[in-house]
Design a protein around this nucleic acid. Structure first.
Lengths: 119, 119
DNA sequence: CCTACATATCAACTACTGTTGAAATGTAGA
DNA sequence: TCTACATTTCAACAGTAGTTGATATGTAGG
């Protein structure tokens, strides 16, 4: 992940409705949620939600698939992991255990097989 | 951490200059960096940087202390951890190992003693 | 094929955010 | 105390982002 992607992702998360969307999708897990359900959950008009979903999708934080009349959205767990790892990269000059056990745990974590679960 | 704090933090990180500041401070570690050094590193005018530092401080992502003529800034590692944990809370209905090993590692991580290192 | 449903697109408006330049505050040394 | 250095504050401007209402696309059932 480069700076541009990270900026887009953080900017996307820095908005009330979009943050709620991502949190709802993170909680929902692999089953995901339909756009209509999200609109109700988050409390935003459908057309407006579309705008935000596009933003999140473009930022690599969510994915979507059509299922009949509905479009189902999922959290992009790999994208979220990449984002956190970008933020914590080179923590304390590459010695994250010095300042932050959470960052150390993340850095040691191999997430390459994550998305296979959401096919 | 509640939604308001998380929104402020993500919005703060979604800005080029502020993201660079945080990354520089995360890399720098407990020693921190002076405002002037940050201004040069990030490539932004001093008065403008002040604006961004205030924003980051208010979002709980950095701390500051005066040291002679300079003001030294540090990454607030606990704040960063809280932010990530807020984002990943209740991942896959409380079973993060289902969707994201990184989130599981974070959830299992106890970071309460982190800030003692930066006193 | 026609209707209803689900989602997406577009243009216009409003409000906010980041930048700039000038000036103020605070700190240390001669 | 006077001067230089480091950082912050303030007001004004320019550009961007989010909302709204109207309209368009795509999908399933009668």
């Amino acid at each position: 992940m480069d700076e541009r992607q990270a900026l887009a992702a953080f900017a996307a998360l820095g908005q009330e409705h979009r943050l709620r969307v991502v949190r709802a999708l993170v909680t929902a897990g692999p089953d995901g949620l339909a756009a209509g359900v999200l609109a109700e959950t988050v409390g935003v008009a459908g057309n407006n939600l579309s705008f935000h979903l596009k933003e999140l999708s473009h930022a690599g934080l969510i994915t979507s698939r059509r299922e009949g009349k509905s479009v189902i959205y999922n959290a992009a767990y790999a994208g979220l992991s990449d984002l956190v790892q970008f933020l914590m990269r080179d923590c304390c000059q590459g010695h994250p255990e010095v300042c932050n056990p959470a960052a150390a745990a993340l850095a040691a974590c191999d997430c390459t097989t994550v998305d296979a679960l959401h096919a």
